[in-house]
Write a protein that binds this DNA or RNA. Structure first.
Lengths: 141, 141
DNA sequence: ATGGTTGCAAACACTTTGCACATGA
DNA sequence: TCATGTGCAAAGTGTTTGCAACCAT
């Protein structure tokens, strides 16, 4: 019974990827943290787990994950990419311009708008990204 | 009467920037085109106008324009920035994943959502970005 | 005249790639 | 075993910066 500890091997097997330490750790990161991570954050996290990984490897991992549909690549106007789990649908981010914190926001209804776009413009929406920039509660004091 | 030809000197004066050929041409580009431009597009456009400009100069111009509030810097998950006029409020983009074309989309009502965010999370929204990815009409044949 | 702007080169940050070695199944 | 994954180094993009020369006002 090796499955009592959930270590993401299942998810990796499902998409025909080998379960290497770095991949397992990164999957765990994404399942634990709700904040989209950039490559440096992942390297730092792995280092804490005593896993040393080259940036090139991390880039390869997140790119593979994204191709396989495990993760999603997003950009928050920072000059770099971030990555997050792809399975949560229709959620957005509140990005604090003061402290840089990123908060998740779920349940926004853009479906109507997408139908509207289809009708008015003939454009077939596959996905969307919605980000809010502003000042978070604790930075307002 | 040198103002019969609108050459954007007014906008530049308003924000205390000198009216150089490159700046004037870039302002004209933005006023004419509705598609957000990246730096390479601006260089190509200037070249057509017989204005040779260094990438560094273009980056400096769009950064200055953005600081002064003339333009806005956006990212469409491409690994680079694009720039567009800042004066159009509340508009979004339809990005075709087949042909790469970017179409503007106006009149979306996110105000309610922003009020909701303020109420529920205490997060004070200053701006947002909303992009739709999909397949445009002419790519569906 | 003079301070803002530009060109050029160099540096920087992020990301990708080639290849030899290592490793998971 | 052997296809897949990784480390390292190099290269590829996009972007910024220092400084001398240039030009708009």
């Amino acid at each position: 019974m090796r499955n009592n500890i959930h270590d993401c091997r299942g998810e990796l097997n499902d998409v025909k990827l080998r379960a290497t330490p770095a991949r397992i750790a990164i999957m765990k990161y994404f399942e634990r943290e709700d904040k989209p991570a950039d490559v440096q954050m992942l390297i730092d996290y792995l280092k804490k787990q005593k896993i040393n990984a080259d940036p090139a490897t991390i880039f390869r991992i997140v790119n593979t994950f994204t191709e396989k549909g495990l993760t999603r690549q997003i950009s928050l106007n920072e000059g770099k990419y971030r990555y997050e789990l792809a399975d949560k649908h229709d959620h957005h981010h509140l990005i604090c311009e003061a402290c840089g914190n990123i908060e998740d926001m779920t349940d926004c209804n853009i479906d109507d708008l997408e139908k509207d776009i289809k009708k008015k413009k003939g454009f077939n929406v596959k996905s969307h990204s919605l980000e809010f920039f502003g000042i978070c509660k604790s930075c307002q004091h």
